[in-house]
């Protein structure tokens, strides 16, 4: 939450700047942007700066096989799981700098914070062996669910194009994410077969439990950075002479898997690759833009 607080403060900085430079204090001057017949101190053409912030929802849809490694509480050994797809929902806040180069084209930079819970479910692809009281190992089939909380910084560098000034616009560009945390996993796994078998758990205790839950799971293999292509639409809704509400719908498609490509490596050999793991995130936000 400290990170979140920090970002809320960041978002409020441009807000306070905009308040200080609001319409009543605005005085156009030769140094100001190009003049506009409609509005004082606001250009419809030329360089115009907008500062602002966005808040909203962030949704992620995963495709391909996601291999996640963790300590297997059942098998008394490191285990891994491969989940076929998943999705997640969280929130996004960001600070925005928007530079209008003309009536139609602008550059947009966003620095944001995203926190999201991704949900995966599926079968464990690695054969798990249960240690029987006799000491023998019995193969078992498990399935599971994983709720994984991730948080990361997001930096977007986008080109904005709009058909008419202060109307609907299109965004396109690059988004770079830096992972802050991925260690808040909640794992539920269930022994599908054999049924009702007594075995020794990771602590050597005899048990016949068929399901287990593990919180604060550490999931290794996440990449620290992620690059994605981003595109979206938005619109300017005037709320005053220099204040705009800007709802946006954006989607970014990760160019690289969020997990390391080599997946599960045993004795230097990749057992389960991650190369086909991709995910798409969609953000629905509402923001304010203040013309400077």
């Amino acid at each position: 939450m400290n990170v979140l607080r920090r970002f809320m403060c960041l978002a409020l900085v441009p807000l306070s700047v905009a308040l200080a430079d609001g319409p009543d204090n605005a005085t156009a001057s030769p140094g100001n942007p190009l003049g506009d017949v409609l509005h004082p101190g606001r250009a419809s053409a030329g360089l115009v700066w907008h500062l602002g912030f966005d808040v909203g929802l962030n949704y992620a849809a995963y495709s391909g096989t996601q291999v996640i490694t963790f300590v297997n509480p059942i098998a008394q050994a490191d285990g891994w799981s491969a989940f076929d797809g998943g999705n997640g929902l969280g929130f996004i806040v960001d600070g925005v700098v928007d530079l209008s180069l003309s009536d139609h084209v602008g550059l947009v930079a966003k620095l944001g914070y995203i926190q999201r819970v991704d949900k995966f479910s599926g079968a464990f692809v690695d054969p798990v062996f249960l240690r029987l009281p006799s000491g023998a190992l019995a193969p078992a089939t498990l399935d599971g669910k994983l709720d994984l909380t991730t948080s990361f910084f997001n930096f977007d560098f986008l080109l904005r194009y709009q058909l008419a000034p202060k109307s609907w616009y299109f965004l396109g560009g690059v988004s770079v994410s830096s992972l802050l945390s991925s260690d808040k996993g909640n794992l539920e796994q269930r022994i599908v077969s054999p049924d009702n078998t007594f075995y020794l758990d990771q602590f050597g205790q005899l048990t016949n439990f068929t399901s287990f839950a593990l919180s604060d799971l550490t999931v290794s293999g996440y990449k620290k950075t992620r690059v994605a292509l981003k595109a979206g639409i938005g619109t300017w809704i005037p709320l005053g002479t220099s204040v705009f509400l800007t709802p946006e719908l954006t989607a970014d498609y990760a160019l690289n898997p969020f997990l390391k490509a080599d997946g599960i490596v045993f004795n230097g050999v990749t057992i389960v690759p991650n190369s086909d793991a991709r995910f798409l995130t969609i953000s629905l936000t509402a923001g304010l833009r203040f013309a400077l």
Binding site: P23, L239, G240, L284, T285, A286, L288
Partner: peptide, 19 residues
């Protein structure tokens, strides 16, 4: 996230009107 979004929509609109 839902509360944040809702709050943001309401507060931004209210703020903008005030502005």
């Amino acid at each position: 996230s839902s509360v944040l979004l809702l709050t943001a929509m309401i507060s931004t609109t209210a703020f903008a009107q005030t502005e």
